[in-house]
C-alpha cells in the first residue's frame, strides 16, 4: 500500500496522446513547443525554458509547480498575451494567442489594483471594459455582485490602501471573475499572504472554481496548495532550459476539504513525490538520459500516485 502504482514513462506517453486526441473538443488551451530566450550581453541568448507541451481541458484546474527561475511566470504571461514566445505557439479555443484577451483573466501575484480607484471602481473598470455598452447602473450592479462573492460587500467604497493583503487579493479575484472569462490565469496569487488568509482564500477560490466549472492555470511553488486545488500538477525542472518533467494526476477525491485533506490515505505519497521532485529531481533532470528512458517533451509522462485505487 501507499506505493507508486503507476509510474510508466512509456505507457503514459500514449495515454496522454490518446486523451488529447479523444477529448480535443474539450481542449481549452494547447501549448505547443513553447520556448523563451532572453538575449544576454556578450554571449549566446539564455533559454529559460524550451519544448514545453501541455494541454488543458475545459473545466480543469492545472497547477504548474517549479522553483523560481524555471520560467513558470513567463509561461503564464505568454498565455495571458503579455509576453511573446520565442518559439512555439499557444492555441486557445482553436485560434492562436496573439495578445491579451478578455477571455483569459489574470490574477496577478501582487494584486495589481489601481490605487486611485475604490474597490467597486476597480471591479467596475473591468466590467465596463468587458461590456462597454452597459449602463453605469448595470456595471455597478454586476461589479457589486462579484464583490459580494468574495465577501467584501462592506468595503465597496474603500481604497486598496485601506485593505489588508488578503482583502486586496480578494478584490483581484473578484475583478478577474467579473469579466466572466473562459479561463483564469493565476500567478502565485496567495504567495504574499499569511498562512491563515492563504487557506481561507484557497477555500474560496476552490469553491468558486468548482461551482462555475472554471478552467484554471495556476503557478505555484507551494506543494500543499497544488494538491488541494489542482486536478493535474505539472512539474517543471529548474531553469535555464527548463522542461516539463512529468505531470502528476491528482488522485485525491474531487470533493475535498482543506482541513481533512492531509488525513486522507495517499496524501503524503503525493506530497512526498512532489517534494522529492522539487528537492532533488528538478535539479538533476537530464534530458538525454530521460529521453533514453522513454521521456518525450511532447508527451511528458503522466504519473498517478495513490493508495490502491
Amino acid at each position: 500500500m501507499n506505493t507508486i502504482l503507476k509510474l510508466m514513462p512509456k505507457g503514459a506517453c500514449t495515454e496522454t496522446a490518446d486523451i488529447a486526441d479523444r477529448k480535443s473538443g474539450r481542449k481549452m488551451i494547447s501549448i505547443e513547443g513553447l520556448a523563451k530566450c532572453y538575449p544576454k550581453r556578450g554571449g549566446a541568448p539564455v533559454t529559460i525554458f524550451e519544448d514545453i507541451w501541455l494541454f488543458i481541458e475545459r473545466g480543469e484546474f492545472v497547477c504548474i509547480l517549479g522553483h523560481s527561475g524555471c520560467g513558470k511566470t513567463t509561461v503564464l504571461n505568454i498565455l495571458a498575451g503579455l509576453s511573446e514566445a520565442s518559439e512555439g505557439t499557444v492555441i486557445a479555443d482553436d485560434s492562436e494567442i496573439s495578445g491579451p484577451s478578455l477571455d483569459r483573466a489574470v490574477i496577478f501575484q501582487g494584486h495589481a489594483l489601481l490605487p486611485w480607484m475604490t474597490v467597486l471602481g476597480n471591479v467596475a473598470y473591468a466590467v465596463s471594459a468587458r461590456n462597454p455598452r452597459w449602463s453605469r447602473a448595470k456595471v455597478r450592479e454586476h461589479a457589486a455582485s462579484f464583490i459580494a462573492k468574495v465577501g467584501l460587500s462592506y468595503a465597496l467604497d474603500k481604497r486598496p490602501s485601506e485593505l489588508s493583503g488578503g482583502m486586496k487579493q480578494r478584490v483581484g479575484i473578484a475583478r478577474a471573475l467579473s469579466i466572466e472569462p473562459k479561463m483564469l490565469l493565476m500567478d502565485e496569487p496567495f504567495s504574499a499572504l499569511d498562512a491563515l488568509t492563504r487557506g481561507t482564500l484557497q477555500d474560496e477560490v476552490r469553491k468558486i472554481c468548482v461551482e462555475t466549472e472554471q478552467t484554471v492555470l495556476m503557478i505555484t511553488h507551494d506543494v500543499d496548495e497544488a494538491i488541494y486545488l489542482a486536478d493535474r500538477i505539472v512539474l517543471m525542472t529548474n531553469g535555464p532550459n527548463a522542461r516539463v518533467a512529468e505531470i502528476v494526476r491528482n488522485t485525491m477525491p474531487r470533493e475535498r476539504a482543506r482541513n481533512e485533506l492531509h488525513h486522507l490515505p495517499g496524501y503524503y505519497d503525493i506530497r512526498n513525490h512532489l517534494m522529492d521532485f522539487l528537492v532533488s529531481r528538478s535539479g538533476s533532470f537530464d534530458v538525454e538520459a530521460a529521453t533514453q528512458a522513454g521521456w518525450s517533451a511532447k508527451r511528458p509522462p503522466v504519473v498517478e500516485i495513490g493508495s490502491g485505487v
Binding site: 495571458a80 498575451g81 503579455l82 495578445g99 491579451p100 484577451s101 478578455l102 483569459r104 483573466a105 489574470v106 496577478f108 501582487g110 495589481a112 489601481l114 473598470y125 473591468a126 471594459a129 468587458r130 469579466i179
Partner: peptide, 11 residues
C-alpha cells in the same frame, strides 16, 4: 502591473 491590467482587459 497597472499597464498589464489595462492590457489584459483589452482597454
Amino acid at each position: 502591473e497597472w499597464l498589464n491590467v489595462g492590457r489584459t482587459l483589452e482597454v
